[in-house]
Design a protein around this nucleic acid. Structure first.
Length: 593
RNA sequence: GGGGGUGUAGCUCAGCUUGGUUAGAGCGCUGGCUUGUCACGCCAGAGGUCGCGGGUUCAAGUCCCGUCACUCCCGCCA
């Protein structure tokens, strides 16, 4: 007989009754009846009830064992009597009457409870992550993560993509997030950087002729954490295709994502191809570049209604004269809501830093509410038509410069969707946001900046760059994929033409020299025959987080850093010896207290 | 860097609004009892720098100031 087990703790069924088995696992719980004692023995696969008779020579040893100790037991599988079957347990029709008991590894008193639903605070959980990961939810989440990655690997490989590893020690790049740096021992004063993404390497692989590449790639960015953003490192499904259009990229990943969510998600994926929404439309209708399409509300621009003859609402008109716009968010069936509903939203808007949230309530006769008296019947009907509502509904207004107005209207749309109970939680709704602008103007300085990836191909190519009257009008072959308002990924058709690249960077104020020194590899590579190519890189952690229905990304990462980017279990970041510092030619200069 | 929330037993939390006897509960832990439980049950017990420092007060877990930690958000994330 195997020294530890003949079966795992989740597989015994009635047909094994009469056989003698050996099980090993953790003592999940213990129920001591004095003359009879039950143990639930747990491993990754499940729970099995083990019975110890009162006359067993090892009875006292079992009584003394603490939960979460590891034990090995041997004995016959016995059918439970009808009234003692536990239907909640997969192994609940049987139990093991044990004849041997070995304590393999005793457990101290626990700093957090593994059995039972009680969840400890995060610092305790992360300090004792090895215990926390024993909990059923964490076992399930990490198994889900493994299953998702396995399916992705299989499907990508089947589609002819080659999985290729790229370096972890690479060069710092001036664009993007803050780098993690690694000092060089052999080259005093020089540093490696951990890659923020394998972006340049995958483009080099395209240039090398690998045609279709993917990788479950670790990415390192020294940026502050959020609930959906793990500090330090995260994983992407990094994908790149040669000779590809935007639609080719979509065809490579849309069916995969649909199937991953359909197979592993607790909810269905909405039918039909993922809608493609132009960035400008998304900003207007949803107030964000990552619209949550489970929320049916759509924002409309109603600036013109407030400029109509006879409309005397000065608070908006004076702002409109200074370039502001008015955005309207519908609130279907809100007319019957009490005054406190509207006051509460107004207070919420102020807490969010907005001037307020004006509103008009519509009934059969027209508009009502604090600002209705400043509106003409023509303005009221213009608003009603623009927003597409009628009697019994209400509409909320945001007035500000276009960008902040869009953003706050988006926040208000989400808030209203929640308050009115309109968000459909029973489905995954994907969309593509497409046609991102290539450039944007910095508000304070008026300077033209790349709005996203500087290596994206401008739509219209060189000609568009040379003929555009305003760089802000130039669109890029740049896209995001969004699920339920969560941005899963950005991607782009890349700019593989050195001449277009030089021109694109010139518009953003980079000289050829700067381009050559800051991005030497790509520019050099593209001078030796580069295929048109493009790709995308969906975030694995976020996908699993959505599938697991977890509000926090750390719930699907085995050993995450905490919000201060510390590993409380391993003690990272930690001090190193003077000798280690000398070897890499470093001396620390700590901030003065 | 900024804003919000939280910090009380090993763990999860109540008590703080309105200061006042010995700071409580559940789980866990220790001892005892218990032969069909599966959140087993019953009895007893141990366990507290109320995050830390200062202040107000006859009296502070409770009020004030500072500080630290954790967390959520803003900034940041080509």
């Amino acid at each position: 007989m195997h020294p530890y087990r003949t079966h795992n703790c989740g597989e015994l069924r009635a047909e094994k009754v009469g056989t003698t088995v050996r099980l090993s696992g953790w003592v999940h719980s213990k129920r001591d009846h004095g003359g009879l004692l039950f143990l639930d023995l747990r491993d990754h696969y499940g729970l099995t009830q083990v019975v110890v008779a009162g006359d067993a020579p090892f009875f006292n040893a079992v009584e003394a064992v603490r939960v979460e100790s590891v034990v090995t037991v041997t004995g016959p599988v016995v059918a439970r009597s009808e009234d003692t079957v536990n239907a909640a347990l997969a192994t609940g029709e049987v139990e093991v009457r044990i004849e041997t008991f070995d304590l393999e590894s005793p457990a101290l008193t626990l700093p957090l409870q593994v059995a039972g639903g009680q969840e400890a605070g995060e610092s305790v959980r992360l300090s004792y992550r090895f215990l926390d990961l024993r909990r059923e939810k964490m076992q399930r989440n990490l198994r889900l993560r493994a299953d998702v990655i396995a399916m992705i690997r299989r499907r990508m490989t089947e589609q002819g993509f080659l999985e290729i590893q790229t370096p972890i020690l690479t060069a710092s790049s001036p664009e993007g997030a803050r780098d993690f740096l690694v000092p060089s021992r052999l080259h005093p004063g020089r540093f490696y950087a951990l890659p923020q993404a394998p972006q340049q390497f995958k483009q080099l692989l395209m240039t090398s002729g690998f045609d279709r590449y993917f990788q479950i790639a670790p990415c390192f960015r020294d940026e502050d954490a959020r609930a959906d953003r793990s500090p330090g490192e995260f994983y992407q499904l990094d994908v790149e295709l040669a000779f590809a259009t935007q639609e080719d990229v979509f065809h490579a990943v849309e069916p995969l994502l649909r199937d991953v969510f359909a197979e592993f998600g607790s909810r269905p994926v909405a039918d039909g191809p993922f809608p493609q929404i132009a960035w400008r439309d998304a900003m207007l209708r949803y107030g964000t570049d990552k619209p949550d399409l489970r929320n049916p509300l759509e924002i409309a621009d109603v600036t013109a209604a407030f400029e109509l003859e006879g409309v005397t609402f000065r608070a908006f008109r004076s702002q409109i004269e200074k370039g502001a716009v008015v955005r309207a968010i519908p609130a279907p069936n809100a007319a019957a809501r009490p005054r406190s509903f509207f006051d509460g939203l107004n207070r919420w808007a102020r807490d969010e830093g907005a001037a307020g949230l004006g509103y008009v309530i519509f009934d059969e006769e027209g508009g009502k509410g604090p600002i209705a008296k400043f509106l003409t019947p023509e303005a009221v009907s213009a608003i009603r038509d623009a927003v597409g509502i009628g009697p019994g509904d209400a509409v909320f207004f945001v007035c500000d410069q276009p960008a902040p107005a869009a953003a706050f209207a988006g926040t208000a749309r989400t808030k209203l969707g929640e308050e009115l109970g309109l968000i459909d939680d029973s489905v995954f709704r994907f969309c593509w946001t497409v046609d991102f602008p290539m450039y944007e103007r910095e508000a304070e300085t008026g300077k033209i900046l790349f709005s996203h990836n500087p290596f994206s191909m401008p739509q219209g190519g060189l000609e568009a760059l040379e003929t555009a009257t305003d760089p802000e009008d130039i669109l890029a072959w740049q896209y995001d994929i969004v699920c339920n308002g969560v941005e899963l990924s950005s991607g782009a058709i890349r700019n593989h033409r050195p001449d277009i690249m030089v021109r694109a960077f010139a518009i953003a104020g980079y000289s050829l020299d700067e381009l050559e020194t800051q991005f030497p590899a790509l520019l050099q590579a593209f001078r030796y025959g580069a295929p048109p190519h493009g790709g995308i890189a969906p975030g694995i952690d976020r996908i699993v987080m959505l599938l697991a229905d977890e509000p926090n990304i750390r719930e699907v990462i085995p050993f995450p850093l905490n919000q201060q980017a510390e590993d409380l279990l391993m003690g990272a970041p930690g001090p190193v010896s003077d000798e280690q510092l000398r070897e890499v030619h470093l001396r620390t200069v700590l901030p003065s207290a």
